[in-house]
Simulated assay, not measured.
Amino acid sequence: MAVAKGACLNHISRESLDINVFGFERVESPKFEFKVIWLKISPDFALHLIERSPDTKLPEGPYSASSSVLDPTHLPRGHHVCFSVSNFDSFVQSLKDKGIETFQRSVPNRPVRQVFFFDPDGNGLEVASRDE
Rank of each mutant, 00 (worst) to 15 (best):
A4H: 08
A7G: 11
A7R: 05
C8L: 15
L9A: 15
E15F: 07
E15H: 12
S16F: 11
S16E: 09
D18R: 11
V21N: 12
V21M: 12
V21F: 01
R26T: 15
S29Y: 00
S29H: 03
K31N: 12
F32D: 15
E33K: 10
F34W: 14
F34V: 08
K35S: 15
V36W: 00
V36H: 01
S42G: 03
P43N: 13
D44M: 15
F45I: 07
L49P: 01
R52I: 02
R52M: 08
T56C: 10
P59Q: 10
E60C: 09
E60M: 12
P62C: 07
Y63L: 06
A65I: 05
S67N: 14
S67R: 09
P72S: 07
H74Q: 15
L75K: 06
P76M: 07
P76K: 07
G78M: 08
G78I: 02
G78H: 05
F83E: 03
F83I: 13
S84M: 06
S86V: 14
D89G: 10
F91Y: 14
F91G: 07
V92K: 03
Q93Y: 04
Q93L: 15
D97S: 10
K98Q: 15
K98L: 09
I100T: 13
V107R: 03
P111M: 11
R113P: 00
V115M: 03
F116D: 01
F116A: 04
D119W: 05
D121R: 01
L125S: 00
V127T: 04
A128N: 09
R130V: 00
D131P: 01
